[in-house]
Design a binder for these strands. Structure first.
Length: 493
RNA sequence: GGCCCCGUCGUCUAGCGGUCCAGGACAUCGCCCUCUCACGGCGGAGAUCGAGGGUUCGAAUCCCUUCGGGGCUACCA
């Protein structure tokens, strides 16, 4: 049996969509699972929707999630070119073949006429579709039409009777009445092929074995099947993936509350493997009660039979949970490197960090890892490790700094801390508690004001740990600052 | 409107005639850990398997009908 060949065929019409990447994930996983080939093909047949740079973004996105294609742009595999815009002669040749065989025909109808026809059909509550006016033109008629419209399209002559049926891997047998099918356009007036035609010619020429695509393509499958029959080619296996919906049950879109742009997730700081895990388990299940899969496990376990047939709602909470898991599984040194660029951008770390800066970063990362949902959380989470002039959190001020007793507590803690010789967590712990005891408070009553003084917030890593990392001098300076602030607050009220 | 697909806890799903008065995960709630938040641990609530008919000794699982949701209906993909 020959090797599987799957293609991911996006069109460069904008920033990569999360749903498209999910389709790519399935292509990639199955290709790898079967030891086959993962192909990237660019369906740039619509010149009006072409967006500069979107292919580059797509390739960057695929590489980011570590799904390198075996054939496609920048990787010649012998079946190219992989840009449909560079395959125009091929399409024309095959289109002409069908015309010559009477299986396709030139259509001279204007857009205006088509538009009117559609309106009339809708008004009469009839199924819309081309009325096949040009399907059986005589030579004379054709000549007359050609004079009227020098840029005809080529339409495929669909069967008018019977049914077109096929087996879909995820849905089983699916069938459509041929009488309801449309004589679709194969070659547009500008000479470019439509998706329906180009993808079939290419899939055949590139020896694609499985067509994996979204369910929105299911109803146009009869066109594709009949095209294969007309050419006498063997059709690939069909795999129509369930759609990804938003929380209102509609196809995921801009207005869905969550972003559909794959890039947004990269920017936000989701990890490639978390994203892969998330995307793979949306519409596919191994049958086990499991949530974490490594890339290798995904490849090993992925089967077409595991694809579910009902749509899935995009659940950001689940993605967040997964990402947190992956962040916690990442070794600190590595995690530190991952958040480094974000901290540099925030101005916390220099462009070429010294060893000292990196050591500090790693200590901070260790302390904050459990609280990170995405890498994007890092700058805010660690801000007080770098900036001394932070603003005190409003509710913490009320609770811990605006109290009559606070200045005395802080003063006492400063005193005890000042005499600490070995700045480790045990000594800090002891000093802070002693400082509280000296003025008659203990536990949280002393720790909370100190935390506010050191971090400006009511929550965060263990106080003594973070103080140890921040250092003695800075801690004492912050305590002084808070003490002054506290006295001011009290006198003002 | 027509055609097609889908329908198990709020969400992702397991389930493929009996071991299911339905299991796991996320979210949610409570408890524990604890200086706080988070992590972690434990526990709870949450689905009459969209509904109604069959078939069968027995159905979430098979059949029919019905309702609901979605997709497509372009010289876009």
């Amino acid at each position: 049996m020959s090797k599987s060949r799957l293609r991911f065929a996006p069109s460069p019409t904008g920033s990569p969509h999360i749903g498209n990447i999910r389709t790519a994930v399935f292509d990639y996983l199955y290709a790898r699972h079967t030891g086959g080939t993962f192909i990237l093909r660019v369906e740039d047949t619509d010149r009006t929707r072409y967006v500069e740079g979107s292919l580059e973004e797509m390739m960057k996105g695929l590489r980011w999630i570590e799904m390198q294609w075996d054939e496609g742009p920048e990787v010649d595999g012998g079946y190219g070119p992989y840009f449909q815009s560079e395959r125009l002669e091929i399409y024309h040749k095959y289109a002409q073949q069908l015309v010559d065989e009477g299986k396709a025909y030139y259509c001279y109808c204007t857009r205006e006429r088509l538009e009117e026809m559609r309106k009339a059909q809708e008004a009469a509550k009839l199924p819309t579709g081309y009325d096949r006016r040009c399907r059986e033109l005589s030579a004379d008629e054709r000549e007359a039409c050609a004079a009227e419209n020098p840029h005809p399209v080529i339409r495929f002559a669909m069967k008018r009777e019977g049914r077109t049926e096929f087996d879909d891997i995820v849905r089983g047998r699916v069938g459509f009445d041929n009488a309801l099918q449309d004589d679709f356009v194969m070659i547009k007036a500008d000479g470019f092929p439509t998706y329906h035609f180009a993808s079939i010619v290419d899939d055949h020429l590139m020896q694609i074995t499985h067509v994996v695509r979204g369910e929105e393509w299911l109803s146009s499958a009869p066109k594709h099947i009949q095209l294969y029959e007309a050419f006498g080619w063997e059709a690939p296996l069909w795999v129509h993936l369930p759609l990804i919906l938003d929380t209102t049950g509609k196809k995921l879109s801009k207005r869905s509350g969550v972003s559909t742009s794959f890039y947004d997730y990269i920017l936000q700081g989701y990890l490639p493997d978390a994203m892969l895990n998330f995307l793979a388990t949306m519409g596919w299940s191994s049958g086990e009660d499991r949530k974490l899969y490594s890339r290798e496990e995904l490849i090993e376990k992925f089967t077409l039979e595991g694809i579910v047939n009902h749509p899935a709602i995009f659940d950001l909470a689940k993605l967040n949970d997964l990402n947190g898991e992956y962040i916690r599984m990442t070794p600190v040194e590595e995690l530190a490197k991952m958040i480094l660029p974000r901290l540099q951008e925030a101005g916390y770390v220099s462009q070429s960090p010294s060893d000292e800066e990196m050591r500090y970063l790693i200590e901070i990362t260790t302390l904050n890892r459990d609280r990170m949902v995405t890498l994007g959380d890092a700058p805010d989470l660690v801000s007080f490790f770098y900036a001394d002039d932070f603003v005190y959190e409003e509710k913490g001020v009320k609770k811990h700094l605006a109290k009559e007793t606070t200045p005395a507590i802080l003063k006492s803690v400063i005193e005890k801390l000042a005499s600490v010789e070995t700045w480790d967590t045990e000594s800090i712990d002891a000093a802070v508690r002693e400082g509280g005891l000296a003025v008659g408070v203990e536990g949280g009553r002393v720790i909370h004001p100190v935390r506010m003084a050191i971090t400006g917030r009511t929550w965060g890593p263990g106080l003594f740990d973070l103080m140890q990392v921040i250092g003695k001098d800075r801690c004492i300076a912050r305590l002084h600052r808070a003490e002054e602030f506290s006295s001011r607050e009290i006198s003002m009220s």
